[in-house]
Amino acid sequence: MTKHVVVGAGPVGLAVTEHLRERGDDVAVVARHLSGRLPEGAEHRRIDVTDPALAKAAFEDADVVYHCAQPPYHLWPELFPDLTRGIVEGVEATGARLVVAENLYMYGDVDARITEDLPYAATGPKGRTRAKCARMVLDAHDEGRIEATIGRASDFFGPRVRESAVGEQVFGEAVEGKRARVFGNPKLPHTYTYVPDFARALVLLGERDEALGEAWHVPNPETVSTRRFVYLVYDAVGIDPGFPRILAVSGVPLTLGGYVSSPLSELLEQRHSFEAPYVVSDKKFRDTFGDAVTATPLETAIEETVAWYRDEAIATQPIRLSTDTDRPSEATHQ
């Protein structure tokens, strides 16, 4: 049986783990901290893989390693290269195959459809860091030190995704009956990636030899405007169509807001992607792998995400103690 090791226990790492466990595969998750429960049957290894020797120990029995980890957003330039270097050297020492989950920051400000052959033209620190890490992985492959492939996704949404342009500030607000907060011009088209689709694509890339040595844009649902995306979220929640659904922040307010609001400040480097059309092509993936992995239809993906947020809202509600004035119900008599 193939042994899979997933580095990172965020939304992407857990989605990969969940997909592998649903297939009955043997999976270990490497993470120093867990923010929630692992899928049933997954092993947890609390190891710091920035140290190549420890990474080697973590990957000793691995056939495929998935790099789905990332440091705190504001510390990417300081921490991401060492994290990636440790994983690459650990994989090299064990002979495992490496699959890396990436976003699209390395391309920088793009004025055309986003394809894999674009140059790494990012000028901001996070984009340059992503480019540096991608080159580190692909150079190691080209030098024959490792077997590696990269899957890239646009802005995430889906179960467990909270810190995203359409995470808590769209789905969370909608489920609570509040207005969504979006960045830039919501009338423009913007590609969003459903995390379970990303996970299935990463697993496929790790299984196919033709994926090696290249970066791939994973399958995405149909691209719509951010306004349309948000309206579909509120439709799934069941909010009245007349409800004012969007509070958009752009231009000068976005720039000024970045100094006092962490989510805004972290998006400043990527503001171009919200103030111009941002359309990602997954044609290369589809042409190569056919229908081995297809994107979940957008409305279905949104409905599944709303369901997760609702379940989380119920699970985190404080327990209200009954009082003498409460009316009795079946729930209080077990």
Rank of each mutant, 00 (worst) to 15 (best):
M1C: 08
T2R: 15
V6F: 04
L20W: 00
R21G: 02
R21H: 05
D25N: 10
V27P: 05
A28N: 09
A31G: 08
R32C: 09
H33S: 13
H33R: 15
L34F: 12
S35F: 14
L38M: 10
P39G: 03
A42E: 09
D48A: 09
L54R: 15
A55N: 10
E60S: 14
V64E: 06
V64H: 05
V65Q: 05
Q70H: 13
H74P: 06
L75S: 13
P77F: 07
G86K: 04
V88T: 00
E89Y: 08
E89F: 08
V91S: 07
V91Y: 06
A93M: 06
G95E: 09
R97V: 14
V100W: 11
A101V: 03
E102W: 06
N103A: 09
D109R: 11
D111N: 15
A112C: 10
T115C: 04
A122Q: 03
G124I: 00
K126H: 08
R128G: 00
R130F: 08
K132D: 12
C133V: 05
C133F: 02
R135N: 13
V137H: 04
A140N: 05
A140G: 01
H141E: 13
D142Y: 12
E143C: 09
I146S: 05
A148I: 12
G151S: 08
A153G: 08
D155Q: 12
R162M: 11
E163Q: 14
A165Q: 05
E173K: 01
A174S: 06
E176I: 00
R179H: 11
A180R: 03
A180G: 02
R181V: 01
G184I: 07
K187Y: 14
Y194G: 08
A199G: 05
V203W: 01
V203E: 02
V203Q: 00
L205F: 07
L205S: 04
G206M: 06
R208N: 10
E210I: 06
L212N: 09
E214K: 15
V218D: 02
P221F: 03
P221Q: 08
S225V: 02
R227T: 11
Y234M: 00
D235K: 14
A236M: 12
I239P: 04
G242V: 13
F243W: 11
P244G: 12
R245H: 09
A248Y: 07
S250H: 12
G258L: 00
G258K: 05
Y259S: 11
V260S: 11
L264R: 08
S265M: 13
L267D: 03
L267T: 02
E269L: 03
E269W: 06
Q270T: 13
A276E: 10
V280A: 10
S281T: 08
S281H: 04
K283E: 15
K284C: 05
R286P: 01
T288V: 08
T288K: 11
V293S: 01
P297K: 12
E299R: 15
I302L: 06
E303G: 06
D311I: 05
E312Q: 14
I314G: 07
L321N: 09
S322M: 13
T323R: 10
T323Y: 09
T323F: 13
R327V: 15
P328I: 07
S329N: 13
E330C: 11
H333S: 14
